[in-house]
Design a protein around this nucleic acid. Sequence first.
DNA 1: TTGACGGATAAAAAATTTTAAAGAATTCTG
DNA 2: CAGAATTCTTTAAAATTTTTTATCCGTCAA
Lengths: 227, 227
Amino acid sequence: MKKTIFVIDDEKDIREILKINLISEGYDVTAFSSAAEAKKGFESEKPDLIILDVMMEDKDGFEFCREIRSSEKLKSIPVIFLSAKSEEFDKVLGLELGGDDYLTKPFSIKELRSRIKAVLRRSGELPEDKKIILKYKGVELNPEQFSLKVDGEEIKLTKTELNMLSLFMENPGKVFTRDNIINSVRGHDVFVVDRTIDVHIMNLRKKLGDYKNIITTFSGVGYGFKE
Amino acid sequence: MKKTIFVIDDEKDIREILKINLISEGYDVTAFSSAAEAKKGFESEKPDLIILDVMMEDKDGFEFCREIRSSEKLKSIPVIFLSAKSEEFDKVLGLELGGDDYLTKPFSIKELRSRIKAVLRRSGELPEDKKIILKYKGVELNPEQFSLKVDGEEIKLTKTELNMLSLFMENPGKVFTRDNIINSVRGHDVFVVDRTIDVHIMNLRKKLGDYKNIITTFSGVGYGFKE
DNA sequence: TTGACGGATAAAAAATTTTAAAGAATTCTG
DNA sequence: CAGAATTCTTTAAAATTTTTTATCCGTCAA
């Protein structure tokens, strides 16, 4: 089933741009121009992700995210906050309304796409057409099933291992620092020590068997996937 | 390279505790007892993070954060606010001076440590790929991917080697003294004998193979990249 | 011929990563 | 809900990689 995203923003242009782009990404998108409108939407449907402009005309963006956070039914839905000014996020943080990610306008669609992917990945969801199998030689990653096939043999991955390996395989050649990895795999407000990443890398390599070298170490920098 | 933190608090004990602890964490810490003092500090250095007590004796903590927020040069620096009373944060928020994180005294050092890490991590997010590939004949340097290609063959560089080669290739024709190189590649707070650079140059040349001559020696002066 | 300078090499020192093992936290199950 | 099982994180040591220092050598110019 397609993943559903609610977009809540009072600027029509933004709504349109997001809608067009996200639909083409394989998401099911519903856009609302105000918090009040969105509330109605929640009555009939529960989205997999909310993209919310915190600073809308009538200032109800803040109020709205507080509501989301306190609603038993909705609080598990990941939220990506949009805002024109980065200071506004401070307020969000200060009010402990913390979301799963933050983006400052103007943002690139590409940036948003990868944030969405990261957020959904963390919550265990993946968009319909992204359930593709990532392949490299004898390594097959099937994000949907949380499984990895190495030379045909099925191997179980934990959630973080899967997220990490997906991150790497989706961005071949790119080098990630440990901080990058923590942010994109575990979220922005998690406190973990760098060495933790090394341990996950090690576990992953162990599971990759003969292909353990597809994860390359860049001493003093981080890790990456190299074909 | 070491991250620099400015600590601004009028209580000497707090300053000392923070300083000792953060230095042992590997940060470069400068402490100030007042906003006025700190301002001087900003003239000569731009820290990576500011830890600010909002409620100092002469109440200039508030004024100071407003200044930071409105200064073009400083507003991108993340700020962690310290305060004795949680109500004070409401004031901070009310004045829209929001910081990137908040801590109420007394706080545990462990708590502060992880907040600092998270804040720095957030601010270090990569702005979506800006691929700069430096090319010269068969030499291709891709700093983003930490990779060097010599006639198509991929060669791994260490961090310093990459920094050095980038420095050279970004400034063709320019001659760098060994001190120049040390400063820009390893940071201002590193003390090393300048013959060290020669060793790095030699290693680089070895890796450059046929193209070793793109790094030119200027006897009595230093090194540079010559097309 | 001497002394300054950089190239080469090896070895020491420092920094970083890997590994294993154990402690926390979370999720599963009855 | 408790206890078990799984997953995640921390820690500390061994192993590896990178950086630095030291030394010897040849070249070049005064």
